[in-house]
Design a protein around this nucleic acid. Structure first.
Lengths: 184, 184
DNA sequence: TTAAAAATAGAAAGGTCGTTCTATACAGTT
DNA sequence: AACTGTATAGAACGACCTTTCTATTTTTAA
């Protein structure tokens, strides 16, 4: 197996385990074992566990981002409804137990600034993206609308833990239609 | 200091630290030090760390519950708006970094069934409470309304981590008014 | 006042953690 | 064929974790 596929395997396994059991709940030993890799191979690619966490977050952000972006671009209905639909589909496919970035903020605030910043900046970028979306659709209060959309999406993610992604998606979309149907 | 106040002190300190740094992020050593208590005093009251976590959750649930309950009872506007207002005030006073019960579910699913159940049952009780609230107000779809309210509240809690409790509360209440103003 | 109960500080046990080290094996390139 | 870079397994390290133990002191109550 080549160098790059081993790094990929490590990132992939780490992301799954971190998401499933939390950053602190997973030891490097487990990651190494499940990725079929030696200890020094991990340390050859990542100087520390925290740097591994950083790269996992960056990779996950990229994936979420392109997912959301492409879904909204090719859709035809209101971009806010599309954003909610895209987020719900993401939840069904990749999340079922809370949000990894929020979790990173909670876990690493006061512990590791770099990780905290990566997670916070992801959320800020999302907010800005929604704000721009609102502006392009001639809404006169883009900041408020973006925050409300974010609140809805965060609520949907949390509800996934409680009632599952399918039901959470149904409620979320229903609420979005009430809240955002006045936008184009 | 009497026996019972020591136990109270332990629970109070543990709740604060667990909430601030997560269950796994806090060691018994820190709890013992900040509660000004000896190791064996803790183990005299709680047979293990996990049992301490359980009692912390039960105590927090009781407090949240009576907070919400009394706020809704004495209010005069729509009970759903009141529920959102009560939850927002709770967030301002006691939470600023996610929800302890959701966190417990994430952390202890597959690890400690008792803790997971306590946290899940709290959420279920809340849902039932909202459902009953909807029924009493002659709503024809109490389950849906309860779930949507819960989604809104969970979203508000998450947003607190991102933009603070005050702004999250503003958006939450604004959304609640759009969503639930049709109820009595 | 005296005996039982509870709290104390601190060490120790036994485990896991992240990280480093060692010594060996295997790949590709020249 | 020899060199270079990388992967390997696994031991070792020091730190920290939860839990237990010990031996001493303080509190409580008859």
């Amino acid at each position: 197996m080549s160098r790059s596929t081993k790094k990929d395997m490590l990132l992939q396994v780490a992301e799954r385990l971190f998401y499933e059991h939390g950053f602190r709940g997973v030891g490097l030993k487990q990651i190494i074992r499940e990725a079929n890799v030696a200890t020094m191979t991990l340390y050859n690619h990542f100087p520390s566990k925290n740097k591994l966490v950083e790269e996992v977050l960056k990779r996950r952000e990229e994936r979420y981002w392109s997912y959301l972006d492409s879904y909204i671009e090719k859709g035809s209905s209101s971009p806010f409804i599309l954003a909610v639909e895209a987020h719900c589909r993401w939840l069904k496919e990749h999340s079922y137990k809370g949000d990894m970035f929020l979790r990173a903020i909670e876990d690493y605030t006061g512990i590791d600034d770099e990780i905290e910043n990566i997670a916070r900046e992801h959320k800020i970028r999302l907010l800005h993206y929604f704000q721009q979306l609102a502006q392009e659709n001639w809404d006169n209060n883009p900041l408020d609308l973006a925050n409300q959309l974010t609140l809805l999406l965060e609520g949907t993610t949390s509800m996934t833990t409680l009632i599952g992604a399918d039901k959470a998606a149904d409620y979320s979309i229903a609420m979005a239609k009430v809240l955002f149907q006045h936008t184009s």
